[in-house]
Design a protein around this nucleic acid. Structure first.
Lengths: 134, 134
DNA sequence: CTGTCTGCAAATGGTTTGCACCATA
DNA sequence: TATGGTGCAAACCATTTGCAGACAG
């Protein structure tokens, strides 16, 4: 839990954001930790988690957490959908514009105040299809 | 991991499915464990998890796992969406017909073989709105 | 200076699993 | 009676957190 609203601009935070924006794929916290470690061998996994959580809350990155295993992080803020491979668990951006949700008053639904939705497509990625034609 | 395809019809499995179908809400494994325990005090949490996993794979129930905490289980197989309260984390069925995804060839997308999608709305439930008007 | 952030390591907590016994078909 | 299932408890593992020292502003 992050309590304060003021945040320092630490070297660690800069590198984490920088490296996350650099990769085209959507790494897990552990994956990004490995990448960041190449620039900053002494950084800890805890720091990576803390900063990813903070950057997500600040709206500077997007956390992709659809259960079943590790969360993934996306440094690309543009509105787009995601595709998860059920075979290798990798996550790609969906090509083209996001598929919007059809219809419905999304404001007040059965007493609920609707804030948003989470959408994720799943399937088999080209790499896994090549390995074994499902 | 469940390996075999043959399954016995145990007393525990029957009660778990029966109780899950009885509740209108979508309990967590621990919540259902508490309910089932009233009928079967000696049942173990591990058995509840094993059976929920199995029933989900058999397509007899639906597992709702969108990260951020515990998975929830739905005994209602009819096609409908879900609403999660970000405040108390409860999950309700969305009223009315499911909001379909608009447009798009969903078959073969950028080399991906698309199998389906997961959609979940989030907001504040009536109970939490009553407590504090967000 | 001061209060936030970091590295480290231990704790957390939902879920899974190994094992010996049980019970279903 | 042959196997799959159960209860129990320990293991797992991604993530979180307490703490003392480091560092940004």
């Amino acid at each position: 839990m992050i309590s304060s609203n003021f945040h320092r601009n630490t070297r660690q935070r800069k590198v984490i954001l920088e490296e996350l924006r650099k990769v085209k794929k959507h790494p897990t916290a552990a994956g990004l930790y490995a990448i960041v470690r190449r620039k900053m061998p002494k950084i800890s996994l805890g720091t990576v988690y803390r900063n990813l959580e903070l950057l997500n809350q600040m709206g500077m990155i997007q956390k992709l957490d659809f259960g079943s295993g590790e969360a993934r992080y996306d440094g690309n803020l543009s509105d787009h959908d995601h595709l998860r491979c059920v075979c290798c668990m990798c996550v790609d951006d969906a090509p083209g514009p996001p598929l919007a949700i059809r219809g419905g008053r999304k404001e007040d639904w059965d007493g609920y105040k609707i804030l948003g939705y989470r959408l994720e497509f799943f399937g088999v990625c080209p790499r896994c299809r090549g390995r074994r034609d499902d």
